[in-house]
Nucleic acid binder design. Structure first.
Lengths: 231, 231
DNA sequence: CCTACCGATCGGTAGG
DNA sequence: CCTACCGATCGGTAGG
């Protein structure tokens, strides 16, 4: 069982840019480079916000880790807040795209297989490569102002809405026994919490996790439509 | 179904102290009062750490909200860190005591009833009255130093260990389908995440939550021992 | 994107 | 527990 994360938009890889010799270009005055440095700022900010928290991370930390001077992040972002918001927005956009691709690939499969896909992709977004953005969004949204929070909430609603038809179908078939609304909140909570304890160096793989979650929530494979019940 | 939270140690109520007229005693020089103010500091610190986060809360915020001057918290706690640690330790001690009482009261009940008790008490600890301490512990442990983290980990292990026999029994009877270790992590995650979305002013009550969680994890009432299977 | 820099705030302390 | 205070740090900016 491999994760259905095939042709997905790589969120933060370096875009095609003319390769320059390693080391900073120093004072070659006016050489924009642009998206490249911005993306680098986002990636290091995401990593630092995740490991230290937003309030405990200074813009100087971010600048240094990106190889800039202390004032330079403000050339790319209006404020520290704006940087945080950009990290979250970027993360949600990428996560949404990945889940939409997952569901598209599984459109003809039974609901249980679709749920498996959603769970696998969710774990991949939280715990796989380049997975700092969504954890930051999950654990630092307190630091957003209300306008930013509102804008993000729209993306989050879209994300959660992807789960509803799948869960409803499983509820209707009896495989999912809790009310759909609370089930969605509890299931996403169980998955989101893995950020706190998952250790890639330890036993369980992402697929082990997905299997355990599926078994916990809907049993070993409920008879959805055309399956024969044993005994 | 009421929560089994009967005779439990109230963590932070004012201990028996001579009642004095309202308003600050002003400069009545040398009048210790002691445990009272310390407990007040802990409670306001817990509330502020929860709502704003540790790093974003200043010791001045805490002092003001407790009715002290900016330097006074340091009379009771050596540092801001020590205050955070005390909040978490207090929270874990109270939570542990409550869960132990719950399990004692349900010792003769089947595992499913015991799990229901654990879930109900856990929700009460997270979302009920005076419930700022454990959320702070769950979401701010990043800010502890490693010595503090180690000491807290011992309490957390004790807490998690309470769940294992219950989950093992349910796993053995087939009611719980995921491996016990991962099931414990996923279940506690589902519960802990409720801190992020639970709103006491909305529809679902704590008992609704507990029922939904039980239904999600172990179904409507698995045949534990002396139950007749249908059909 | 760098160089300098500012104003404000913060954790913590001495001394009572 | 208050008064007065210090040293350090931080987000952000002007000007190039």
């Amino acid at each position: 069982m491999s994760a259905p994360a095939a042709a997905l938009p790589e969120p933060l890889t370096t875009p095609t840019a003319p390769v320059r010799p390693r080391g900073r270009p120093r004072k070659t005055l006016l050489e924009r480079d642009d998206g490249n440095r911005r993306a680098a700022l986002l990636a290091t900010a995401a990593a630092l916000f995740r490991s230290q928290g937003f309030a405990a991370t200074t813009t100087r930390d971010i600048a240094t880790a990106t190889g800039m001077q202390s004032g330079s992040p403000f050339y790319h972002f209006k404020s520290k807040d704006a940087l945080l918001f950009a990290v979250m927005q970027e993360g949600m956009r990428a996560a949404l795209a990945r889940q939409q691709a997952t569901l598209q690939a599984l459109a003809l499969q039974p609901p249980l297989a679709q749920l498996r896909g959603l769970v696998q992709t969710h774990f991949a977004v939280l715990l796989g490569p380049d997975s700092d953005f969504i954890p930051v969004m999950l654990y630092e949204s307190r630091s957003l102002n209300s306008a930013q929070r509102t804008e993000l909430a729209a993306l989050q609603s879209q994300y959660e809405a992807l789960w509803v038809p799948v869960l409803s179908a499983l509820h209707a078939s009896g495989a999912l026994r809790a009310p759909v609304g609370l089930a969605r909140l509890l299931i996403l909570g169980a998955l989101n919490w893995s950020v706190q304890w998952f250790d890639p160096h330890k036993a369980a793989s992402l697929d082990d996790l997905s299997d355990a979650a599926l078994a916990l929530f809907v049993g070993p494979g409920a008879p959805a439509s055309s399956a024969s019940s044993s005994t």
